[in-house]
Amino acid sequence: MMNPMIEIDNLSVTFNRGRKPVQAVNGVSLSVKTGEVVALLGESGSGKSVTMRSLLRLHPKGTTITGRMQVAGHDVTALSARQIADFRGAVASMVFQEPRLALDPVYTLGDQITEAIMRHEKLGRNEAFERALALFEKVRIPSPERRLKTYPHEMSGGMLQRAMIAMALACNPRVLLADEPTTALDATVQIQILLLIRELQAEYGLSVIFVTHDIGVAAEVADRIAVMYAGRIVEEGAVADIIRNPQHPYTQGLLGARVELAGHRDRLVTIPGAPPDLADMPKGCAFAPRCVRVMEACGQAVPPLTGTKGAGQVACLHYA
């Protein structure tokens, strides 16, 4: 039982489109316990979404994936095309940033959810519809019966994201993967969706990976945070530790750049420069060129994550 629900071991993902192969994820290891919420925090191009999509094998053809991934006892890399189709939705399901793009515009929401339920379970259309109705009530969509008969374009962004969550939970998955589900929403709606995810997670005992670029959002939902930079996890630990006592210079820089922590200073502390080109990575620590605490050894080899798993790990020579 104490086996982690999700275990990613040394995952690397390389996209072979274009002239140069791009290594978007570079040796990521991460485990998520049953009923735990882990936020993958990073900026665009850090590999956070790519890591999460690997768990459902959602990458285009011609993508090289190495490493091991276990989800609820399934070896994701070994599943056949048919098995992965059964796995998606029933064991692990996903909520996207843009529900409008993830839902089919020509079917009603009710049709899409009942189809999804019937695809995975031997249920009649009426029973499936009953379950869809119950789910819509669960995610607190007002007048759910009427809403099930509407098309995606007739719903506002927040309602659509609730519908998307209902659909993700339709087949009682054990793992929920959320890819920036609140980024496109207003702050007043974002907080509602975050609270809803937290509540459903607790009720169903879901394991959740929550991808976000906003450390404030991570602080609201996550038990643990894993900070990603240029395809690697640079720091990982309990949410309170990461926010109150960040170790890695990149995490420190990210928190320093937060406007709400600027107090009455008239300038923000910033991280100079820009993330490296993933097709042309530096030899050592990827953050070294922007790091204020850089040493000579930083350019030699990639620092490994050190520290005890679960109690906080950091990939920086200053803590090795």
Partner: peptide, 27 residues
């Protein structure tokens, strides 16, 4: 007040318990 309360808190010990506003921005 509701807008202010909707901003994510940076302190995991003081998480938001109840959404300050319900529903989506009206049409």
């Amino acid at each position: 007040s509701a807008l202010l309360a909707s901003m994510p808190k940076m302190d995991p010990a003081e998480r938001t318990k109840v959404p300050p506003l319900s529903g989506d921005p009206p049409n």
